[in-house]
Computed example of a mutant assay.
Amino acid sequence: MTYPEADGLTVGRAAALVGVSVKTLHHWDAVGLVRPSGHTPAGYRVYSADDIARVHRVLVYRELGFPLAEIARILDDPSADARDHLRRQRAQLERRAGRLQEMARAVDRMLEALDAGLRLTPEEQVEIFGADWRPERVDEARDRWGGTAQWTQYAERAARMTPGDWKDVAARTEALNADLAAACRAGTAPGSSEANALAERHRALLGTYFDCTHAMHACLGRMFADDPGFAAYFDGIEPGLTAWLRDAIFANAGARGVDPATAAWE
């Protein structure tokens, strides 16, 4: 049938109205699912009101998961029981909804793990990191660095770590602290090969949580000395260790082309 230009909808206008692409309508036309009732004198496809109603019915069945061939059979076969199809599809949707809800709960648990950064209870944290560990340190760190790319990296890595992984990190930390304390007591000179090796071990340990460049390491060394909490921690391991570690980090960074005085977090 040929329509005047003002009657019906061209394929572009029909696609925009129902929210599908022109390519989709062309495909449905080609497979006989929704064929426009006529054309304009210029040869353009024209969709009538009944055609658009059929498009909407196709969209409903497609949203329910019916394949196009079955949709065509339901729409065109008078003997097809649309109610029976819909009842069966509703049962499938209920099962799918249940699976999606469980997946949503799993995602919530993953988000909690990523947000907390530790898959450990406070009791497990104390057991692994020692009696002087304060679980609220995680909250303090999140408040301080939560908006940085490094915190995101830390949270993603921490969420994948098992209690066994954390015990390994705690053991490595304890061994490194003992070696740092021994070097500080022995008067090992920052910038010496031994001190540089210890600084690199310290940077590698930080690399467990996020990628730590030498410039970042220098920034952290400065922060250790300036922050009373960090200073108390390191000096509690060995008197004077905070300043020694800062100087060792600075010297190691300088040996690798980083000026500690101007180092930036990058």
Rank of each mutant, 00 (worst) to 15 (best):
R172F: 00
A170G: 07
A183R: 06
Q92M: 04
A72I: 05
T188L: 14
G207N: 10
H26I: 05
R96Y: 03
V258A: 12
L9W: 10
A243Q: 15
P4K: 12
P260I: 07
H56C: 11
R13L: 13
R13H: 11
I128N: 10
A116I: 14
F234P: 00
Q89P: 01
Q125E: 07
E194F: 14
A178C: 06
P78V: 12
D84M: 01
A255N: 13
S192A: 08
A181S: 09
P4F: 10
C212N: 07
L114C: 05
R95A: 04
A189L: 05
A80F: 02
K167Q: 04
C184R: 00
E63Q: 10
V31N: 13
P239N: 13
D51Q: 11
L206H: 15
L64S: 01
E5I: 12
Y154C: 02
P67K: 15
A195C: 12
V138A: 06
A170N: 04
A80M: 06
D211T: 13
H214R: 08
H26K: 05
A53I: 11
A80R: 05
Y47V: 12
F210Q: 03
G43L: 09
P260N: 14
T10V: 04
I71P: 04
L118I: 14
H56K: 09
N252K: 15
W133D: 15
T152Y: 00
A131S: 14
